[in-house]
Amino acid sequence: MEATTPAISVAGGRFLIVGGASLVGSTTADLLLERGAAEVMVLDNFAFGSPAVVAHLERNPRARLVRGDVMRLPQLLAASEGMDGVLHLAAAMSISMDADPWTGLDVNIRGVQNVIEACRANRVRKLVFASSNAVYGYGPGVAGDLVEATPFHSLGAPSGAVIYGASKIIGEQLCRDAHRRHGQDYVVLRYSTVYGERQHYRAANALYIIETLDRVRQGLRPRVVGDGSETKHFLYVGDAARANLAAFAAAATDVAVNVSGPAPVTTLELVRMVTRLAGSDLAPEHVEPPAGRVRLTSGGAFRIDHSAAEKAIGWRPEVAMEEGLARLIRWRDEQTGQDGAQDAGLDAGRGGA
Rank of each mutant, 00 (worst) to 15 (best):
M1L: 09
T5E: 06
I8D: 03
G13A: 09
G19C: 11
G19D: 09
A21Q: 09
S22D: 15
A29E: 03
L31Q: 13
L33W: 02
A38N: 01
G49V: 11
A52P: 00
V53S: 11
A55V: 02
A55D: 15
L57M: 11
P61I: 12
L65F: 11
L65N: 04
R67F: 06
R67C: 12
R67A: 14
D69I: 11
D69L: 08
V70W: 07
R72F: 07
L73H: 05
L73Q: 10
P74F: 03
L76H: 06
E81T: 01
H88M: 09
L89A: 12
A90W: 06
M93P: 01
M93Q: 15
S94M: 08
I95G: 02
D100Y: 01
T103N: 13
N108A: 09
I109V: 15
R110C: 05
G111L: 06
N114A: 12
V115C: 09
A118K: 04
R120W: 10
R125C: 03
Y136K: 00
Y136P: 02
G137H: 01
S154T: 02
P158A: 02
A161R: 08
I170K: 00
A178M: 07
H179L: 08
H182P: 00
Y186P: 11
Y186M: 08
Y186Q: 05
V187C: 14
T193A: 15
A204P: 12
N205Q: 14
A206I: 02
E211F: 02
D214N: 07
V224L: 09
G226P: 13
G226L: 11
G226A: 13
G228S: 10
E230V: 07
K232G: 13
K232W: 05
N244G: 12
N244L: 05
A247I: 08
A252T: 05
A252L: 04
D254N: 15
V255Q: 04
V257P: 05
V265D: 08
T267N: 13
V274W: 02
R276S: 15
R276W: 01
S280C: 12
D281W: 03
L282F: 13
E285S: 10
E285R: 14
G292K: 01
G292I: 02
R293G: 00
R293V: 09
V294R: 10
F302R: 11
E310W: 05
K311C: 02
R316L: 04
R316A: 15
P317M: 03
E323F: 00
G324Y: 05
R330F: 01
Q338V: 13
G340V: 07
Q342L: 12
A348G: 14
G352V: 13
